[in-house]
Amino acid sequence: MSLTVHGLRPAGVESDFITAENLTAGYRDKIVWRDANFTFGRGELVVVIGPNAAGKTTLFRIMLGLQQPIGGTIKIFGAPPRRGNPKIGYVPQRHVIDSETNIEALELVRLALSGRQWGFNPFSHNDRDAALAALEAVDAMDVAHRPLGVLSGGELQRIFLAEALVSNPEILLLDEPLSNLDMRRETDLLHLVDDVVRSRGITALLIAHNINPLLPHLDKVVYVASGKVATGKPSEVLTSESLTALYGIQVEVLRDPHGNVAIIGLEEHHGDV
């Protein structure tokens, strides 16, 4: 009997971590974007780009169950999103931690694992071992005992990544982890995210401003602009033809000899070439 149950499981479930059909996001009086269709499988690195306030974070909020879609369907592991899904790790976009915060980084990562538990157990160290392993995985052991308030932007992003990884998620949502990083730290962090995602088979969605440094790493791109969402391989999505067809206005995608991309016509600010 149990064999039959296993056999009944649809083939798509294991490979499709996230699927959306005609997903529409917004509020009662305003649609942010409509009719998004995408499928993300295990181990895919997906980059979400688009102008400011186009609704990139809204997509994350829907996946986290913090906001309800106003149309269409979205399924995560075959079920609608729900708040507190332990299979999702989340790094929100945030401002610098208060420099007065003198709590060591390790404590934050520990709490990401044990913070949901009520009660008080001063002698439990399970979360400590897991937190140290997560810090090791993001190469942040050297700052484990330093206060959060004195860490640099790149160090903090590693700590936040460890905070998200400590509960062994299968999906990782990273909201602008590269902002406030200089180019070298950006490259370092991208390699780290790439390594972690590939080695653990995690599906990662990463919101970014500039797609170019990410092109060597990503599997799919989600382009959110002007109320619409385009998804697919960058070579398919980021072309003048497909974006012009999607938006119904003339959109130019320029490429330089190094493969860098600039999208003209939908964003005021680009200059990525």
Partner: peptide, 17 residues
Amino acid sequence: RPLLFASLDEDVAEAKG
């Protein structure tokens, strides 16, 4: 522990339900 975590990182705590 919940209060400590919510005080340190409210956004992630909220997403964790």
